[in-house]
Design a protein around this nucleic acid. Sequence first.
RNA 1: GCCGCCGUAGCUCAGUGGUAGAGCGCAUCCUUGGUAAGGCUGAGGUCGGCAGUUCAAUCCUGCCCGGCGGCACCA
Length: 861
Amino acid sequence: MTRYNPKKTEPHWRNVWTQADAFRTGPADPSLPKYYVLEMFPYPSGRLHMGHVRNYSLGDVVARYKRARGFNVLHPMGWDAFGLPAENAAMERGVDPKAWTYDNISRMRDELKELGLSVDWSREFATCDLAYYGQQQSWFLDLFKRGLVYRREGVVNWDPVDQTVLANEQVVDGRGWRSGALVEKRKLNQWFMRITDYADDLVDSLKTLDRWPDKVRTMQENWIGRSKGLRFSFAYAGDAPAGLPEGLEVYTTRPDTLFGASFVGIAADHPLADHVAASRPDVAAFIAACRQGGASEAEIETAEKIGFDTGLSVAHPFDPAQRLPVWIANFILMDYGTGAIFGCPAHDQRDLDFARKYGLSVHPVVLPPGEDPDTFEVGTEAYTGPGRIYRSQFLDGLEIEAAKAAAIQRMEDLGQGKGATVFRLRDWGVSRQRAWGCPIPVVHCEACGVVPLPATDLPLAMPDDLDFSKPGNALLRHPTWRHTACPACGSAAIRETDTLDTFVDSSWYFARFANPEAPGPIDKAAADYWLPVDQYIGGVEHAVLHLLYARFLTKALADEDMLSVKEPFAGLFTQGMVTHETYRKPNGEWLEPRDVEITATGNVRQARLVSTGEPVVIGDVEKMSKSKRNTVSPGEIFEVYGVDAARLFVLSDSPPERDAQWSNSGVEGSWRFVNRVWAEFDSQPPGSVEPAAPDDAALTIRRGSHRLIKTLTEAIEGFRFNSGIARLYEFLNLLKDFKAEGAGPAVLFARQEALSALARLIAPFTPHLAEECWARIGGEGLVVFAPWPEFDPDMIQEAVLTLPVQVNGKRRGEVQVPAGAEPAEVEKIVLGDPEFSRHLGGLTLRKVIVVKDRIINIVAS
RNA sequence: GCCGCCGUAGCUCAGUGGUAGAGCGCAUCCUUGGUAAGGCUGAGGUCGGCAGUUCAAUCCUGCCCGGCGGCACCA
């Protein structure tokens, strides 16, 4: 009996895999079924955390499993290496961001390799490699030439802490997604990508992503926010204000309620509001008051609706004699629709609140089912449900949807409006005022304007001698880099100093992995074979960031004929976070798990400080974070329990999509499992085992192992790894009851079969242990090259089943019947059983229900 | 407010229209040359609540309660 020693076996097998070049991706051979497994690539912070361990272990299970199933597997790794932390390190510690980043990459690569991932490291690259971002500059200019990239002045989100612009997606509750600083609005010239051109496609093709979580699809749909409605103009009653368009254009999704309009509202930022304010100090004061309101969600939500009558009025488009007053209102957003609405208080809560406050009239025009048109009234709640239109001339009697269509049609006939689709999605602002990012390859020339660099000038590298001693954009401060000659006219010109949002870098890396050596951005033939990614795995926090940008760019590059696929990720899995209990001293100071000792008596757990014995308060379970100090370092765990035990634990604790709670006792359980598995292999007599006719014990083992193959395979296919591992535990309990010591040939033979399957079944989860076990029982070659075990359906079924017998739904006994026995036959057996009549007592038999191979229920009264 | 997910043993979670399961923890005992360990045995569950459908509901349906996540003055 030898003890399992992961410190020795794990490095050994990793070395064997490297020597055998076991994970090199096969050539793009269309005759072979391919499988592309990808985990969201890491930011090289320099340190592996448990979240990484979980993410990459999940992907590795899939990759190893698919490889065993005969797929040509692509499982690459790279680095999302541009971004602010490097600049912050440069500023705080005076290091070079490039050196700092590559240093971190080298450290993290070692840690990732220690995880024993089946990654093809020959394809590795970092987004800060000139060979990568130079290619990015190349397609960026292609999109620029096609108009998908443009520059304009716009109001942007400015993060005062990170001193850069943020995309809308990167502002959460009015704060920067990284810094948490309150975002300010600034007017700047910025680069944008025309993601709105693809808005319809991005919504419509969500339904083709049937292997994505509904949750993520819903989030994207909400974010894009498509609504269908009518855009039309009100004619002013009297002359249009000088210098403004003839009519006042509004947007609505409820054209069916047009006859219920009682006012027109415009945003405080609307040009008409500005126009009126120019001659009306009271209006100007009101607009200023609106702008003072806070920008956060909470403030907006609780803000009272306020408005100001401009004194202007417009004519109702379907009933020009009717006049509607024009109000400025604080709840109308300038950047959605046209910044102007018509108010229909009876059927919109916001309009109703507003109308009640300012004494505007309320005209119901949708009659709820069962209501009397003469008595129906709207009080304090707007009616937004179904019904028939009334008091609306040509719309009378129509259902809502039909009325919408009719109103749009009439408006189009009048030439005053048009059916329109409006999106909440805005174009993607990709300018960042940072130096450690992909330089935008254009120059600004006094004479020629914005001039893209010619292909011969690419890649455009950033300078190596940047000064990060001060905040702000180091590229802007560089003494010489900006100054260049205009590629068009040759006169002095200035380089663009904005760099690209790092989300641009991560929007196409999966395509580059198809051939990272390609002379152009993407090797189309290779990408055609490998894409889409069959299984993408990462955190749900990117539901509307990375995952939306990558979908957009895939479509844009496909239209550029650089890709054939329209969607990058056929299957998406969003894994949960790794959490841990928190611990604090009575004075509130956070404590690290390693400093705390937990004891349990009965069901009561107590904690105390290891060093002093002081009592410790056990707090909530939360995401591992430095601030709460509830992190556990993967390296230390590997050191104590080995990599396999750590992998096994993060995979076994909970379903992959949910949070997993790390605990010391949990990983100890995994460690014991590793040892128990080894003990079963180690106790099996070495050398070949003679075939022997099975006895009952051998049959039990065989049935168990064939069932295990079936259920574990289904669990992996269904991404229920924790459930699969639970089956492994159960099987080991079974195997333990049929020890090799002193066993007869039949049991030994059945064990040998079981162990051969088991070594291959554990390989995706605990690959090092699997190799050691495989070698121990004389498996051929390496387990990484071994095919996935198959089960024999005939072995799954038991010959004789014990079925429960219920009387009136309550379990009263059991009966033995042959498997597959017909209900009539079972009924005869049960009724013939003397025990049955005893249970029946004096009751009269009414009915016997037999569910084949499951249960018998006797109904009696 | 709207949408979604979740609620099963002390904890973390499987599971199924038909006999309630695993790991950890807990308790008893054994081992003390596998020893900063190993093993045996066991206790512990109105399957969140209430109603309905059914021969039978933890599972299906409805309502309610609790937790988590997303969206939210988007016209």
